[in-house]
């Protein structure tokens, strides 16, 4: 029996499916390739090239940039950066987990209000949020004045321009990025999981430790990546709250590009940050598989 409508043939239908797939995917993916993947290729290529006399690069192959990065001076900076970023991440977890957990206990409409309140500062200007701490923590700032007026201290405390101030600034900037993924992981846990543990004889504390916590772990790791990665490469917080005294790897990279004009060496440092990101993602993906089984990505 012939169809009443004109047949277009299977090839035409296949061609049209391919066309729409191309139309939707190609522009965005081309853009990402051109402005993220190719630039990343540039960074990798630069790490093997030599620095030009007046900045820029010269096409002379070398490993010198890598050996230079192993210099104890730069390794020290890298370790210090990792240490500071890790401190901010751990603090963000210790504060963020109870906060995320508390939010899941609120009625649904209040959960949303609370989440908005927590993310709102994150979407505002980073420089200004960092600057606000100078206003607060300066020797003549609000906190010192308040403490002196209350008679707690007699001399103003130097709260700024030390590593702890950097950790505080990073914590402040990125703690919403820890709370959100932990919250998402926690609300996705079937409440029956905890009840099942209790029904099988666990105390509420055991149920939390043996069931809730492991199931929230993938979310915790996403949060850790979201806090650690922008922290370790940050150069604004060390400059504004660290007073430029504590040099972190972000400051070093910026200086290699804008002051020392040693692009190949700056590229090595930048690549180390990208590698850290990839390693962390790899770990997160593995933990996610282990915790949730193979069925869920």
């Amino acid at each position: 029996m012939a169809l009443a409508v004109k047949s277009e043939g299977r090839d035409a239908i296949k061609r049209r499916a391919l066309l729409s797939r191309t139309l939707f995917l190609v522009p965005g993916l081309t853009y990402i390739t051109a402005f993220m993947l190719i630039p990343l290729g540039f960074i990798i290529a630069y790490t093997f090239l030599s620095r030009g006399t007046y900045g820029g690069i010269e096409f002379i192959f070398t490993f010198e940039n890598y050996t230079r990065a192993l210099d104890s001076l730069y390794i020290g900076v890298l370790i210090k950066s990792i240490f500071i970023a890790a401190a901010a991440t751990v603090l963000a977890f210790l504060i963020g987990f109870p906060v995320a957990y508390a939010i899941t206990k609120l009625p649904t409409n209040r959960q949303n209000i609370m989440l908005v309140l927590i993310v709102l500062p994150f979407w505002t200007n980073f420089l200004i949020r960092t600057y606000a701490w100078i206003v607060l923590l300066n020797t003549q700032g609000f906190l010192n004045k308040g403490l002196i007026n209350m008679g707690v201290i007699s001399q103003p405390l130097e709260l700024l321009y030390k590593p702890s101030a950097i950790v505080l600034g990073l914590l402040y900037a990125y703690i919403p990025l820890m709370i959100l993924p932990i919250y998402s992981a926690l609300v996705r846990i079937d409440p029956a999981m905890k009840e099942a543990a209790i029904n099988l004889g666990a105390t509420p504390a055991q149920a939390f430790r043996q069931v809730t916590l492991p199931l929230a772990l993938p979310g915790v790791l996403v949060g850790a990546i979201f806090v650690f990665v922008p922290s370790v490469g940050n150069f604004i917080v060390p400059e504004l709250l660290g007073g430029g005294k504590t040099v972190m790897v972000g400051n070093l990279i910026r200086d290699q590009f804008l002051k020392a004009r040693d692009w190949p060496f700056g590229s090595v440092l930048a690549l180390s940050m990208v590698i850290m990101l990839l390693v962390l993602f790899f770990i997160q993906a593995r933990v996610n598989r282990r915790v949730l089984g193979d069925a869920r990505a």
């Binding site: 965005g28 402005f35 960074i43 630069y46 370790v232 490469g233 590229s267 940050m273 990208v274």
Partner: peptide, 19 residues
Amino acid sequence: ALTPAIFPDLALAIGLLAL
């Protein structure tokens, strides 16, 4: 597709500058 959102901004910045 989602990587640019979480890629270290400094690495993105210098890569683009190099390009």
